[in-house]
């Protein structure tokens, strides 16, 4: 299972595992949107298990933010894996994705 859902600090948490790319994106998009709709106000998405992130993955991360704003909810991304960090850094999206990103030292 690429996603497992649990609760952290009282709000739902989606834990992403493995690839977050075009191959699984249609399924992930639906699952994550569903999770967002189900969440009472805040959804946390743990990215520590993401091994690969491509453009389609980035788009879904952006989409969730946008959708959350529309629903007046919020989405937090946490524990970004190195693969995710590299892409967010390259695309200069740290600001847009709006989450505390831990920049690794010296980079």
């Amino acid at each position: 299972m690429p996603i497992s859902e649990q609760t952290r600090d009282g709000h739902p948490l989606a834990l992403l595992m493995g690839g977050f790319t075009i191959f699984e994106i249609a399924e992930l998009k639906d699952a994550l949107l569903h999770a967002l709709h189900m969440a009472p106000d805040t959804l946390e998405i743990d990215l520590s298990g993401v091994e690969e992130l491509d453009t389609s993955g980035v788009q879904v991360l952006l989409l969730l933010k946008q959708e959350a704003a529309r629903l007046q909810k919020s989405v937090h991304y946490s524990r970004h894996s190195p693969a995710v960090l590299a892409v967010i850094d390259l695309l200069n999206l740290a600001g847009t994705l709006g989450d505390p990103v831990l920049m690794p030292n010296g980079s």
């Binding site: 994106i25 249609a26 992930l28 998009k29 949107l33 980035v58 788009q59 946008q66 959708e67 529309r70």
Partner: peptide, 22 residues
């Protein structure tokens, strides 16, 4: 400097996860 343009991204229902909007 790199700016990612996301303006083309539609709302969730209309968004096709396999299309590129960036």
């Amino acid at each position: 400097y790199l700016h990612t343009l996301t303006d083309a991204m539609p709302v969730a229902e209309l968004m096709d996860a396999e299309s590129c909007y960036l």
